[in-house]
Design a protein around this nucleic acid. Structure first.
Lengths: 231, 231
DNA sequence: GTCAATCATCATGTATACATAATGCCGATT
DNA sequence: AATCGGCATTATGTATACATGATGATTGAC
């Protein structure tokens, strides 16, 4: 029987956990690209460890959906087609909408202040046409809304799914008008949350995420068509 | 590079996968109860394998949220408190509501027929006051709605979360009136889906799942209070 | 020259051996 | 008597050795 309550115990991290973080980062940033093979021996040599912790890391990434393990065949960075990407964004939209609805009902004054700061950060980045900056501030904005939902489990789920989708961010179109449109959508969301209008907040957020997903999926589809033609 | 399309390849299952299934079943059915310790050596001996595939199984269960691994300390069947259980049911409600909404829009005639059959199964079980039977038919009903959403990713997420919650089903109250109330809620859901009213279907489903979650959480809270008192 | 079957190669799956940190016992000290 | 600290124990973390199935290259038949 394990004691019911365990506060902040500083726990030694396993090698596998650190390796997972490194590999995850490389997948999310595109150093490792969808379809790439991950060979255990090669990774073991690269990191100077045995295969055992490597396998642990791979299992964790596989469970997170970032890689795909095919027994006896090897493991590969997950490839997501347009159809599935759309499905994932549909769910993401819903989770984010739920966060926004709950945030509208439960956000504390501190939550609202943090949210407003993040929004201002987006504004500044949009103003100067700073795409990378906007991307960064945008993540904070969404994160603050999630936190304001005051549902820890929901936050975990949303974060996990966002990670899976993040690997496809490099498909993002860098259109100036999209930057402004995104910001205006944020504006509608934050206004609804501050007004305590849960339904409006949810709807605004759903639309905001969905349009982003559609753009990704369209672009991905066109890329795949091009590849198919050239192959 | 992995081939883009891989049809039905019969793949050999790993031992770890089979072990995961066995342990999962034992957790979901309550043979292994929240807080129970899982010792690798002991499990290895029990199943007649080495620790390696046992560890694989544990990693998978850990990722699924069914167990908790604390480095150097051991692994335990996950314990979920009332607060977190409520959070999880809130998310479950939302996912199921989303399934219902999508089902109302996209269900094929075959989907609707299967759904109706499942509903009739529930009716029969409720009629004869068969709690176990209703539980079984109820699962099919929900599963059919999920399938009718035609969003494979959503179905996966909903299934995964349902598994995590399933471990708490033994808390279910066996009240006859709850059986009838549940059935009537189902009736509202299926009516809205058949009518193609997405919003109504979603709302009906949300309420249906939420009320169930509240009952679980209340019961769990009362159990924990009792334990705390006796300790 | 093409195709298919056989076999060598190698990455993955599994077992075992070794390393190390957490746990609990026991005795010494206050 | 109670508490602290050291030591033995043991389960987990890691490395290595062995087993096995997938891959593809070679060879032979047509």
């Amino acid at each position: 029987m394990v004691p019911a309550g365990f506060a902040e115990e500083r726990v030694m991290e396993k090698r596998g956990d650190r390796l997972r973080d490194v590999l995850e980062e490389e997948i999310l940033t595109g150093v490792l690209r969808p379809g790439d093979r991950l060979e255990e021996l090669q990774l073991a040599e690269r990191f100077g460890v045995s295969r055992t912790p490597i396998r642990e890391a791979l299992f964790q990434l596989s469970a997170a959906g970032l890689i795909e393990q095919r027994p006896r065949r090897g493991t590969f960075v997950a490839e997501v087609g347009p159809k599935r990407l759309m499905e994932m964004f549909d769910v993401m939209s819903e989770l984010e909408a739920m966060c926004a609805r709950l945030a509208a009902r439960r956000a504390t004054p501190e939550d609202l202040a943090a949210l407003r700061r993040a929004h201002d950060g987006c504004a500044a980045a949009a103003e100067r046409g700073d795409f990378d900056g906007y991307y960064y501030e945008n993540e904070i904005f969404h994160e603050k809304i999630r936190e304001a939902s005051r549902n820890g489990f929901l936050v975990e789920q949303a974060d996990a799914l966002q990670k899976r989708l993040k690997a496809y961010r490099r498909l993002q179109l860098r259109a100036r008008d999209r930057l402004r449109a995104s910001f205006e959508e944020h504006d509608a969301v934050i206004a609804a949350i501050e007004a305590g209008d849960a339904e409006a907040a949810g709807e605004a957020m759903r639309g905001h995420v969905t349009v982003q997903g559609e753009r990704f999926a369209d672009l991905l589809a066109s890329l795949e068509r091009r590849e198919a033609k050239s192959a």
